[in-house]
């Protein structure tokens, strides 16, 4: 883990410590670290144990479950089938749409079954993620730039952006469902007669608009916090040197805000990949708005074990995306979190 941090993190001198590296060091320092280590393990133990119970145990049990057959009535033969080891059949059910055949063996899942929806749900999830995160990044950046300026009423704007963030997503979904009702204010204001939840493109965009409304403020505040770390003198110097506004944005703002921006995009991406509340309430997953999370929930009552396989697949997808962000796109959350970025200001 520590090797991924790159250069030795710079710490504030007051706390006096350097991160632990293996290798020769003073005996006194070793003792200090040992005693702090004992303290730390006592202080951390309750949190680690609690997270072990509420996260690690369910993950392991989901993985175990995913290799078990679901007991229940066979949908095709109508006979009761026993559970038992399933090998990878729960996974192939989702990934390759292989459903159990009456006489043993497998057949392609018939259309309409949950198994046949895996790839479309994956597509929908990524579609939502890419579109909403892109929109939120652009809008959030713009909002952050405005909020970073000094003008009268700035604190009003900064307070207002917290309103969508504070409204629970379930309420947001109902609110936008009402706005997008056929006779609702949405159609009225824009003089349109769109049946928003009636077909694929409007239904998807209803979810996208509601999500963008709800979460752009979070993005804007994270980017704003990043913008405020840039010293004003840098801009002054660039102005003196005759840099245009666009050049200042591209050469100063973007590179300096990039660490905060990448973390904001990572947070939002992981959040969007598990999107559930909005499409579940707003469109009930109809018209190709079923995300992976909705598919898992729909599967639960038809068979835990198959649902466990699907949620494990979802988890792995999200993990891979997070890994790509951290490894290749430079969203170094731990470094940001530990204050190591301070040295780069």
């Amino acid at each position: 883990m520590a090797t991924e941090l790159g250069p030795t993190p710079v710490k504030e001198p007051a706390s006096g410590g350097t991160p632990i590296h293996h290798g020769p060091k003073g005996v006194g320092e070793d003792n200090a670290i040992a005693s702090q280590g004992k303290w730390a393990s006592w202080l951390l133990a309750p949190t680690i144990v609690a997270l072990g119970i509420v996260i690690v145990y369910p993950i392991i049990s989901a993985i175990v479950m995913s290799f078990q057959k679901d007991a229940g009535l066979d949908p095709v033969t109508g006979l009761f089938t026993e559970g038992g080891p399933a090998g990878f059949s729960n996974y192939t059910n989702w990934l390759f749409q292989q459903c159990a055949a009456p006489g043993g063996g497998t057949v392609a899942c018939p259309p309409g079954t949950l198994g046949s929806q895996f790839w479309s749900a994956t597509g929908t999830t990524f579609y939502f993620t890419i579109v909403t995160v892109t929109l939120e990044t652009i809008l959030g950046f713009w909002m952050a730039i405005i909020m970073a300026r000094t003008f009268r009423g700035r604190s009003l704007v900064r307070a207002a952006v917290l309103v969508p963030w504070a409204i629970p997503t379930a309420v947001t979904a109902q609110l936008w469902l009402f706005i997008f009702a056929f006779e609702g204010i949405g159609n009225k204001l824009f003089n349109t007669t769109i049946l928003w939840t009636g077909s694929e493109i409007p239904a998807r965009w209803a979810v996208i608009i509601a999500d963008t409304w709800k979460t752009t403020p979070f993005m804007a505040l994270l980017i704003l916090a990043g913008l405020q770390m840039i010293p004003a003198e840098v801009y002054e110097a660039a102005k003196v040197d005759g840099a245009s506004a666009w050049q200042r944005f591209r050469m100063i703002t973007l590179p300096l805000v990039k660490p905060a921006l990448m973390v904001a995009i990572l947070f939002r991406t992981l959040d969007a990949l598990r999107m559930f509340d909005l499409p579940y309430i707003l469109t009930e997953g109809s018209n190709n708005t079923t995300t992976l999370s909705i598919l898992v929930v729909n599967q639960i009552r038809q068979g835990f074990n198959s649902a466990a396989a699907l949620s494990t697949i979802t988890f792995i997808i999200i993990f891979i995306v997070a890994f790509i962000f951290v490894r290749f796109l430079g969203a170094n959350v731990v470094e940001q979190q530990t204050g190591a970025g301070k040295g780069k200001k």
Partner: peptide
């Protein structure tokens, strides 16, 4: 853990 998808918990917890 803070970015962990809730949907990965729901199935095992539902069964448990």
């Amino acid at each position: 853990a803070s970015m962990f998808p809730g949907v990965a918990l729901i199935t095992p917890l539902f069964q448990l």
